[in-house]
């Protein structure tokens, strides 16, 4: 019994550490995009990509540690499966943030100044959805029945993200000042950013199932 409690405590601590790391990764990503919009300097974005990658890698390391801890037979088989599935789905959010900044760097994307505010708004919505996702995941380990409150926030932010995404793309394709090829590239970037809130929503759906399974 004591062994079970210790492992449970350890899993809880590690998941909390993982959530902090994902939050850190999202903050670094948001900061990188803000800086790039102010000054699209390639050296700066290279450094930011490295920072986001480092934060994402650290989150990955913690996730693998948790997986090893789980496979050493901590917790009920059902909870083990739920937590492993949750972490795998959560992992897609920092991955998406990293691939977005990498896309900007590799494809030499320059965001036109007139679009910066809206793009940063989309980034902010995505990061807030990510934070709500973290809040919901952490709630599972403190007060699981209330995790659904944070999931409601994710849903709202995801809808807002979709709205901004659609607005941006429509504006982009009715803008005669931007070259057709650049339009395609920028549309892909917008879609890439918008995916962050979509992936957070997937995590929310998974948490909803975890809570429902334990419903009375």
């Amino acid at each position: 019994m004591a062994l079970f409690v210790n492992k449970q405590k350890k899993v809880q601590t590690e998941v909390s550490r993982y959530c902090s790391q994902v939050a850190n990764c999202l903050d670094t990503f948001q900061h990188a995009l803000e800086q790039y919009c102010k000054n699209p300097d390639r050296d700066a974005i290279r450094k930011d990509v490295a920072d986001v990658h480092k934060a994402e890698s650290l989150a990955d390391d913690i996730r693998r540690d948790i997986e090893v801890l789980m496979y050493s037979k901590a917790l009920f088989p059902e909870s083990r499966g739920d937590i492993l599935g949750l972490l795998e789905t959560m992992d897609k959010v920092p991955n998406q943030a990293e691939s977005t900044v990498r896309m900007i760097m590799n494809q030499h994307i320059v965001i036109p100044e007139t679009y910066c505010q809206k793009v940063l708004q989309l980034v902010d919505v995505g990061c807030r959805a990510g934070k709500a996702m973290i809040e919901a995941a952490e709630k599972l380990f403190t007060d699981y029945t209330n995790a659904t409150v944070a999931i409601g926030k994710i849903d709202e932010l995801e809808s807002e993200g979709d709205r901004i995404d659609a607005e941006l793309i429509e504006r982009l394709f009715s803008d005669d000042d931007i070259d057709g090829f650049d339009k395609i590239i920028l549309r892909d970037l917008v879609k890439q950013i918008s995916q962050i809130s979509d992936r957070a929503e997937n995590v929310g759906d998974r948490i909803r199932i975890i809570v429902a399974k334990r419903g009375i």
């Binding site: 019994m1 079970f4 409690v5 449970q8 899993v11 809880q12 917790l75 009920f76 059902e78 909870s79 739920d82 599972l140 380990f141 403190t142 007060d143 699981y144 029945t145 209330n146 975890i210 809570v211 334990r214 009375i216």
Partner: peptide
């Protein structure tokens, strides 16, 4: 028991531990 489990804030792992015991 359903009301007790629902109203007392607890981690899903604590719930599992209680039910396990």
């Amino acid at each position: 028991l359903g009301a007790v489990i629902h109203w007392i804030p607890m981690s899903m792992l604590t719930r599992d531990k209680i039910l396990w015991s």
